[in-house]
Design a protein around this nucleic acid. Structure first.
Length: 461
RNA sequence: GUGGUUGUAGCUCAGCUGGUUAGAGCGCUUGAUUGUGGUUCAAGAGGUCGCCGGUUCGAAACCGGUCUUCCACCCCA
């Protein structure tokens, strides 16, 4: 080995078995996206920098991968900028493109650019990789796939209900029991901030509140006071830390608390409608609950906020999230188009399914049948049989060389092939083939003239 | 971006306060087995000790830098 090759930090190679499992998850998600009437789109892996920059806050800008201009990019930089060594002003001169950071902003750009050809409400889904110059951690990478479904041009809260059903359908299909779909509303958060007199520090307030289950009530109180929220105000929010009871009980508590806030009351009303409607429809396996501490993606969510928590028995946190953003396309000049959408966290779902052993066993079966190679004449007969099996849709292969039978068997074993077919001198003379079940070890002889008998048997199982 | 952590055979990892020729298990190759895998037994191959520099008579071990891994924070899927 000359020089050990490597891949960039936070990126991964996927083995055949990993790809099979990932495709299984993609397939299930995609199936339900389509059943719910969403249409796929794709957007470029990189966008013009000004499409992305400034859309995710200062923190986001830092995490966007910038692409260096082609050609002699330094030549166009004036001396003053070059000498000042100011990264921000220099970056805009030497880089005009950047890698996609999420799928939502490019989608908003897409909607604005194609507004005259789109029939609203427009339901689209998109499954593509995105890139972030983040420092990797468990379940967090610098290149990862997002699976998003969004609706634009529909104000109705029925959309929120539909997304809750969609989450439920996907996780039920994946066999993942005990997921908890948590719902909140930006208006409720704004209302709380208003009632306690912390309206001007809404973001700091919610970011602190969001950490409740992580750093505890005391930690939240400390962070809030660090951010300049008064002791009085903090005392007023304290009841929220221990909000308990059924969803409807929590709703009435909130209603009371927010009675003086017009915006907050609206949020409670919206939340109540969603819960009533979902109750009337029923869910397959997911739990639905109120979580007023939920405060993700505040940069653009304006109404409902959704997050899906993995089953409690696995230590994984959020495996999906979403919400309503009333003015996303506004930043690209198209006003009054409401959007709501959700995202599935593929990598984390993968880790959860792996930990709980929920992947179907057949995924690892890249081959159903392997014909052993006993030499030129026998191999020809085996290849005929292989061709026949392939035409019937069976994943079949012939070992390419007449290596030792022991070695060929070992190969079949390592590849997890359930059936091995032997056509040796004896079988050739008798115009037959032997099928060995690799799990039980049982062998059965079939006639080469009627291989469909074997296929029939194969499909019975 | 901040703090910590990790790197030794294909994989998982030992390797003592710095001291001969760097080990184990699994895997791999070959044989026991010229038409039967998983179990067993025997033999064998495989390592610039992440990379660069420094200290030392002597470095896998100590020091500095760098890359990488994982973790916490920031933020986020």
């Amino acid at each position: 080995m000359a020089q050990k090759p490597s891949i960039p930090k936070g990126t991964r190679d996927f083995t055949p078995s990993e790809v099979a499992k990932r495709n299984y998850i993609f397939g299930v998600i995609k199936k339900h996206f389509e059943i719910f009437g969403f249409q796929p789109i794709e957007t470029p892996s990189f966008e013009n920098s000004d499409t992305l920059m400034g859309k995710y806050g200062d923190e986001g800008d830092r995490l966007i991968f910038k692409i260096l201009n082609s050609g002699d990019f330094l030549n166009k930089v004036d001396d003053a900028t070059y000498i000042s060594k100011d990264s921000t002003s220099l970056t805009s001169k030497i880089s005009e493109k950047a890698l996609r950071y999420d799928l939502t902003v490019p989608f908003a750009r897409y909607v604005v650019m194609h507004q005259n050809e789109i029939d609203f409400p427009f339901k689209r889904y998109q499954i593509q990789p995105v890139w972030r110059a983040d420092r990797p951690q468990k379940g967090r990478f610098r290149e990862f796939y997002q699976c998003d479904a969004d609706v634009v041009g529909a104000d109705s809260l029925l959309q929120e209900v539909e997304f809750i059903q969609l989450y439920d359908a996907v996780f039920a299909d994946l066999g993942l029991e005990g997921v908890n779909i948590k719902v909140n509303n930006r208006k409720i958060l704004a209302g709380i901030a208003e009632v306690i007199g912390a309206k001007d520090v809404l973001i700091d307030f919610t970011v602190a509140l969001d950490k409740l289950d992580k750093i505890g009530a005391e930690g939240v109180k400390k962070e809030m006071s660090d951010k300049g929220i008064s002791v009085d105000s903090i005392a007023k929010v304290e009841p929220l830390f221990s909000l308990s009871g059924s969803n409807s009980e929590q709703l009435s508590t909130l209603k009371e608390l927010l009675a003086d806030s017009k915006e907050g009351s609206k949020g409670v009303e919206e939340l109540a409608f969603i819960f009533e409607t979902v109750d009337a429809l029923g869910l397959l396996s997911a739990q639905l609950s109120i979580d007023v501490t939920l405060a993700r993606g505040l940069n653009y969510y304006t109404g409902t906020i959704l997050e899906v928590a993995a089953p409690q028995k696995v230590d994984m946190g959020s495996i999906g999230g979403g919400g309503r953003y009333d003015d996303l396309t506004g930043i690209f000049g198209l006003k009054d188009v409401s959007g709501v959408g959700i995202s599935f966290g593929l990598d984390r779902i993968y880790l959860v399914l792996e930990e709980l052993g929920l992947f179907p066993e057949t995924l690892d079966q890249s081959l159903q049948v392997l014909c052993l190679n006993f030499g030129a004449k026998e191999a020809l007969a085996a290849l005929k049989l292989t061709t026949f099996l392939r035409k019937s849709g069976t994943k079949a292969d012939l070992y390419p060389s007449d290596a030792k039978i022991q070695k060929q068997f070992k190969y079949a074993n390592n590849r997890n092939v359930p059936y091995v077919i032997l056509i040796g001198e004896k079988e050739l003379a008798e115009n037959s083939f032997v099928v060995k079940n690799m799990e039980s070890g049982a062998q059965e002889t079939y006639n080469l003239k009627s291989p469909e008998d074997f296929i029939h048997q194969l499909k019975m199982e």
